[in-house]
Design a protein around this nucleic acid. Sequence first.
DNA 1: GATGAATGAGATTTCATTCAT
DNA 2: GATGAATGAAATCTCATTCAT
Lengths: 213, 213, 213, 213
Amino acid sequence: MQASNSSDKQDAPGARTFTESARRAQIVAAAIEVIAEVGYSKASFARIARHAGLSSTGMISYHFAGKDDLMREVVVEVMRVAEAYMRPRIEAESDFSARLRTHIESNLALLVEYPKHLPALIEVLTNVRGDSAGLGEFVGVTEEMNRVLAERMREGQRVGAFREFDADVMVHAMRGAIDEVVGRAAREPGLDVTACGRELAEIFDRATRNTAP
Amino acid sequence: MQASNSSDKQDAPGARTFTESARRAQIVAAAIEVIAEVGYSKASFARIARHAGLSSTGMISYHFAGKDDLMREVVVEVMRVAEAYMRPRIEAESDFSARLRTHIESNLALLVEYPKHLPALIEVLTNVRGDSAGLGEFVGVTEEMNRVLAERMREGQRVGAFREFDADVMVHAMRGAIDEVVGRAAREPGLDVTACGRELAEIFDRATRNTAP
Amino acid sequence: MQASNSSDKQDAPGARTFTESARRAQIVAAAIEVIAEVGYSKASFARIARHAGLSSTGMISYHFAGKDDLMREVVVEVMRVAEAYMRPRIEAESDFSARLRTHIESNLALLVEYPKHLPALIEVLTNVRGDSAGLGEFVGVTEEMNRVLAERMREGQRVGAFREFDADVMVHAMRGAIDEVVGRAAREPGLDVTACGRELAEIFDRATRNTAP
Amino acid sequence: MQASNSSDKQDAPGARTFTESARRAQIVAAAIEVIAEVGYSKASFARIARHAGLSSTGMISYHFAGKDDLMREVVVEVMRVAEAYMRPRIEAESDFSARLRTHIESNLALLVEYPKHLPALIEVLTNVRGDSAGLGEFVGVTEEMNRVLAERMREGQRVGAFREFDADVMVHAMRGAIDEVVGRAAREPGLDVTACGRELAEIFDRATRNTAP
DNA sequence: GATGAATGAGATTTCATTCAT
DNA sequence: GATGAATGAAATCTCATTCAT
């Protein structure tokens, strides 16, 4: 008999119980709401646990590796929902200009449908810097999405659907304008988000439109 | 440029010695830099004191009624600088469209001149909620400024300089687009902010332009 | 080699199924390795469970009455192995001096054979104080073993095999010197433990040798 | 006016108030006693603070950068005391053999004089592994001290004062034998440590003595 | 006016243990 | 017999604020 198996065994990392997944989802949902309501910095485990009806913060630490892990799941969840909501709507359109309008309008329709998701996403992404290891990645993901969007715009420019402009600046302007509506909606409960969406769509349609003959 | 007296101490309204004002200004300047560099949530008194070359956080508490008070001064200072920088440039223009362009371009020129001021302002304003007593006021101030801006736009619409659109949405879109450049500039050091300003100006010129005959 | 039954469960004294014993043995083996590798204080149930390929710490609590119980089994197991290894080798020798040498050398040979056992034992015994109910007993067991050893030495003194010295101090010196090699072996992987054993044997042979005519 | 001093200022690191130093010393003293009494793993900030008559653990965190920092100070303090106590006594002796005896005896005399210091030192050093950044250094310091000691022994061998043996093993044997007395003294309050010192000195004198003509 | 020292609340995290299934 | 889930205590650390000097 000799000393054996000196390195820890590891379960298949994807294996997760039903109840475990349910709990995680429940906690993520609570986190989204708390973050949207009180902001990232005040969204402590204690508050999230209370909101989720859990008896202790240890519960959250039990299901998530740490605050970063939870926040990552928040981002993943919101992006999942956003993708599922927006992509089919956008892809249903065929010409560049309509896609652009639909991108903006479906993004804000998503805000109407899930009023806490986008505020939470913005809170998390703006309160994360170079630190927090695995979360910085999502800043990268967002930037990548913006790059793809800009590339689409450049295609539109090549085929004459759009005028000449700096596509990166345009994409970020759109992004900023939409996020501003998200922020306003949180501060002004009565705001007609759908109407804002139409206005923004018009703004960026005019800003991108090719007026050459 | 003098230290402002816009926030009064409890007992002696407006009265403040020179050294006191100098200390406050020094601390506010340090706070702006720290907030811009590490973000609002990590901008603790300890970090600000260290950055200002102070030996203890007690110094800050001594000069400011609390964190809210300091943050209010940060906002006041940045707005003072912004106002001093942008207003004359904007007022030098006479027609609506030029004023709009100048608003955007001077705002981003300000970012080039004072790279920490606008990031700090945005950090503070986005990390403040209904709580923190006297700070919510500044969200109101900002909204008031936006309302004034929107009113100018409506004037422009009345005289036919601008097309018909929801002026509030337009103002916030501008606001969001500019703030996005501020954020990008922090993440991408090489970004040509001036060029972004020109692009944004073009975007919102086209978005507001009256194309009717 | 069989799983021992030295620690009884509450109700059914001595009765333990095969799987139960196997599980206990598996956990004890994992505990020995973990303790040797990361030290007593970091050897949490979580780590031991992971090392043993178990999915939860509940498993350990299920099979052991508590951490003390597990640690007691660790001690028992190591002592069992040590006894089985060293005793026949020592008893094969007939004169006092040879027994002393063999005691030291077989102790360190045991370290070569089971590199994790002695480190684990030392970790447990040095991290246990008067508290932890049933574990203090083992400090007593160890002391008892030392007393027996000292008694043997005094016999050797009576028959003139050893010089006069304080047998307790001598035994503890031996103990300390051996344990120090155990510690060194953990810190210096290339250490020639067998050679250390020969050197130690020589040291204590000279320290005990009767030089009188 | 441009943004300036973007990197935090730093006080001269050695600057420390009188009261600050006194508090630190008080906390270190309390830590030494607590560690010696309940062991490293149970020596929590809470316990140390209580022992020192402080009202909160925050007090300790205020004066020390963390647990590692406090432990480092504990080690430094004990080594400082040990050095001040042992060195002059050892250096008062001129021949190798007397120095060896004095090393052992003064080490244990130190234990009589400061009964908590050595137990605390041993606790800290044995409960630190590769982790805890700045503390691993002290394992190195200890090893360095052992190397120096071994070098002295080899000098003694070269001049014929000592017989041939592995000096490293001898030094560690001495170390282990002394530490074992430290441990015993904690468990057996009545132990005559001075007598143990004499016995150990005799043991290692005989173990090293050159018996060749 | 200024400062170092102290404070206590609150944050995240880890742990051994218990419980329902 | 076995297991995943839950729990609450305790640990370290950070923070804004207060106080005595």
